[in-house]
């Protein structure tokens, strides 16, 4: 049987990307870790943003990782769901706002 395309075990191999490009891989992970430090935004807020973006880009690894990260931080399920709705609203909105383009073209071409 062929191997499922996404496997939760694969997330653990993420760090291996460094093997084929040590410099860029190392830079990426350093950057990644810095991004999630406490800053003007708290790590807790960043975790929720990450969860929302994970849903927006539909990355199964990130969804797993940031749901668990949220659990560890004591983020509650209603907070997580609200974050996912933010992603959905922006994604949905991004489609919908292009309706303006559609309307422009339609109107321009119509008599």
């Amino acid at each position: 049987m062929s191997r499922p395309y996404y496997q939760s075990q694969d997330l653990k191999k993420f760090k291996n990307i460094t093997d084929w490009s040590p410099e860029l891989g190392t830079k990426f992970f350093e950057y990644y870790n810095s991004v999630f430090q406490e800053g003007a935004l708290s790590s807790r807020e960043k975790s929720l943003i990450a969860l929302a973006v994970a849903h927006s880009v539909q990355c199964p690894y990130c969804i797993d990782a940031y749901t668990q990260d949220g659990l560890q931080r004591g983020i509650e399920r209603n907070e997580m769901m609200e974050a996912v709705h933010v992603a959905a609203a922006i994604r949905g909105g991004a489609s919908l706002v292009h309706g303006v383009q559609m309307m422009e073209v339609y109107d321009k071409r119509s008599m």
């Binding site: 790590s43 807790r44 668990q68 659990l71 560890q72 931080r73 004591g74």
Partner: peptide, 14 residues
């Protein structure tokens, strides 16, 4: 202690 199958987060933040 975590209410489920996950590890506790950072003690100071919690």
């Amino acid at each position: 202690n975590p209410s489920g199958a996950f590890l506790p987060g950072n003690q100071k933040s919690l």
